[in-house]
């Protein structure tokens, strides 16, 4: 009986035996998630280039705008890729330019003026933002898109034509547990 009790005591004492672990590893941990997020989209047809009297307008009556307030970049790697894809079935080429503003509606930067040709195949324009450009991009709170038709045949009311645009933001999200 004495042996059994001694054995049991040893077993219970050994409960405290935790070896080969290091909790401090958690403190320096960092986890990365690759994300490509469809951020914005625009789908319009020929009617959007006509006024109420079916007269052609060079631009939509107002710039298209998206309000990006509420987006946070604190957990993102210090570079990101902003790509915009266009496709068009218009029989006329379209110029497109994006303008980026901060929260005070101060213009931060403009994109190149993209030429979207009258072909039914998508075209992608991408820009990598890093360093100072990254800091600039992360302060963007509003994007305007302006479209203009290049010279060509007078357009007619038609729902079957389509111009579409999708902006995708590619980045790595970083999680650094704070203990």
């Amino acid at each position: 009986m004495k042996k059994v009790l001694v054995l049991l005591s040893l077993v219970l004492v050994s409960f405290s035996c935790i070896k080969d672990v290091d909790y401090n590893q958690i403190e320096s941990s960092e986890f990365t998630t690759p994300l490509s997020i469809a951020l914005l989209q625009l789908d319009i047809n020929q009617n959007d280039f006509l006024d109420v009297n079916n007269n052609e307008i060079t631009y939509p009556s107002k710039p298209y705008i998206v309000n990006l307030s509420g987006l946070y970049y604190e957990s993102v790697t210090d570079n990101l890729l902003f790509s915009t894809q266009f496709s068009s079935t218009f029989d006329r080429d379209i110029n497109c330019q994006l303008t980026f503003f901060n929260g005070s509606n101060v213009e931060l930067m403009k994109s190149d003026e993209y030429l979207i040709q009258s072909i039914n195949s998508p075209v992608i324009y991408s820009t990598t933002y890093e360093g100072d450009k990254y800091d600039l991009f992360t302060s963007v709170r509003r994007i305007d898109v302006k479209l203009s038709l290049r010279n060509g045949n007078q357009i007619q009311p038609d729902d079957n034509t389509n111009f579409s645009m999708q902006s995708v933001i590619h980045f790595d999200m970083i999680l650094q547990p704070q203990f």
Binding site: Q41, Y64, L71
Partner: peptide, 16 residues
Amino acid sequence: SQGLAFEYDSPIGYVQ
């Protein structure tokens, strides 16, 4: 979602 649609001067933020 294929991304939020552009709007005319929406006062509402993206996340909202």
